[in-house]
Write a protein that binds this DNA or RNA. Structure first.
Lengths: 340, 340
DNA sequence: TTGTACGCGTTATCAT
DNA sequence: ATGATAACGCGTACAA
């Protein structure tokens, strides 16, 4: 592989001049520039970004740590972030934790060694010691979608999950439901916790009493959620509606209801959370809580970039976006959200 | 950020010894090793992988270039590859081309600068000049899922797409269908081309005549496929079955059929290709052609690793895996594939 | 068992 | 406008 020296030799100039050409710096005679460029093209020279990184102390790479890339919510996030990052010459090193703290810890280690310029975490637990090294390293970092507890100075962009859950239950209540079950996410994730709180808050404000028998743990797992729904369905005081903590879980709830021979929404209404793309499919038509993922991703990346470039920016960045209710068929409403 | 020298100073040894400890090399007195390790921990030292890469000429990184991470087929692939790569200490730099040759070209440029140890492409076009620099660079490289035409020495792992398509049509034929439409992928992708050929081959072998009016271009796009299906449905000599070139397209076909007030499979049978996870959902139950993505991904990564490590390996690697027909509900068969 | 010294490819500084 | 040189952090050959 040719280096800057090979190009220099070939073009009959010094390495310094080649560097000037590569970096489009001034003070190079046009003819020299051309000559050098020609050698670069002929030799198929690619500047070594490792060497550049060593000098400049910047790698132009960002570590993106996701909970689960096969969840469309994260896949869509990844797509947006990769694209936006690329526009600013950042590469994305993608890590997938499966919500495993050990995995995350290992990835953080690797990313710290790779000297990424910044981190985006879409995977943290409420209490997450694996992030300590990142914080200690002072490498810019922002949380996405989930946040941590008791870490008041860390940056994040999240949704108002409590409000989202409240809106879901409110909608079901307005449709006449009085026994509304919850297939919830774990307390160890802020989303699971906050959506549960929103559910509670809604029950209280509508005068419904909390019944722990119809609040089951789905663990953000499809299998668990399916089982939870089966349990709800076969209980003797069956709920008339099920609110699931995310769309993937809601899909599993739908599976359970359908395979039990019941109808959605006539026998049981279902509402999800996230508005992943398949939710709008004709065969699914899931009523759900939407969030503007693109905006959330954009805010995360832009903030991170500013931190990296030490641009002025009010720290910590702590943005909470508003959710939206998207009404489709699974809730039984006669007034679906109009399409744009 | 502490460097190897800082650790050396703190532990009262030379940099060489620290290096020996980091790399678990022999010839270090146990006490010395401990002492050094202690300094490493205390100072939160992370070896600089840029510097290591410069010396060793290896970055332990692999460029994964995908057509579309939001397509579950690719997301599931990415997940597997990231996990397997991690086990062997490789990081994945993820690129998403949206099937745009220009994007791919740019990403290749970046990855070549980053000196990735290898490439996995799940995004190539049949004729794809953007790959020339990769080939010229001699950096190990393997294609996944799609291959190129007229490039006999390049490595790939693909499915027998022609056979897969043949099996789909054969199945529909056996169920009594005689007018089978195709919503196809573009000729510019080997998958689109090969699946089309399989369709043709099946028609011929069952004595059905090819009717170009029921072979429409879906371009691997959901919108296009929806429109194509609408067109098929409203044609006066309506097909009784539609075979779509991938599952995402099949889902759009389903949407079109459902929203036209027709029933699947009674009015129109539908078969897809890929067996993405949602295909098995109760509300969808898509009959489709399955491929063993995990195996395909594993072969790709293992082969690549061997090339990188210059282990003995029969080159070029050109693996063609066999597809499987997974029968669910959308084809109208009474005998769904048994579940494992 | 441990240390010294050089080079990996680049950029920034200083000189010419 | 161009060139020489040092430095970034690490691994390794060689010396001790």
């Amino acid at each position: 592989m040719p280096t800057i020296k090979d190009i220099a030799k070939r073009a009959g100039v010094s390495g310094a001049t080649v560097s000037r050409v590569i970096n489009n710096l001034p003070n190079v005679k046009p003819e020299t520039r051309e000559k050098v460029q020609k050698s670069i093209d002929e030799m198929q020279y690619y500047p070594n970004s490792l060497a550049r990184g060593m000098r400049s102390k910047k790698t132009n790479s960002i570590g993106l740590v996701l909970a689960d890339i096969t969840n469309p919510f994260y896949a869509e996030t990844a797509k947006t972030i990769i694209e936006l990052a690329g526009r600013h010459d950042y590469s994305i090193i993608l890590c997938n934790t499966n919500n495993d703290l050990n995995e995350q810890h290992k990835y953080i280690d690797v990313l710290l060694q790779r000297k990424v310029d910044g981190f985006i975490f879409a995977s943290v637990h409420c209490k997450d010691p694996s992030l300590d090294p990142v914080i200690a390293s002072k490498v810019p970092c922002i949380l996405y979608n989930r946040r941590m507890l008791q870490n008041d100075h860390i940056n994040y962009v999240v949704l108002d999950n409590e409000l989202g859950a409240y809106m879901a239950v409110e909608h079901l209540y307005n449709l006449g439901h009085r026994r509304i079950a919850l297939v919830r996410g774990p307390n160890t994730f802020s989303t699971g916790r906050e959506r549960f709180n929103g559910y509670l808050k809604a029950l209280k404000s509508f005068g419904l009493k909390y019944d722990e028998k119809i609040v089951l743990q789905g663990k953000y797992s499809e299998k668990q959620s399916y089982d939870a729904a089966i349990k709800l369905i076969s209980s003797k005081d069956r709920p008339t509606a099920i609110f699931a903590s995310n769309d993937l879980m809601a899909l599993s709830v739908l599976e359970a209801v359908i395979s039990s021979g019941l109808r959605v929404p006539e026998d049981i209404a279902v509402v999800g959370f996230d508005d992943i793309e398949i939710a709008s499919h004709s065969a699914i038509q899931l009523t759900t809580i939407s969030q503007n993922r693109n905006m959330m991703a954009e805010i995360a990346l832009d903030s991170l970039r500013k931190m990296i470039n030490k641009e002025s920016l009010q720290l910590p960045v702590q943005v909470v976006l508003k959710p939206m209710l998207t009404v489709r068929k699974t809730c039984g409403s006669k007034n679906p959200t109009s399409r744009n």
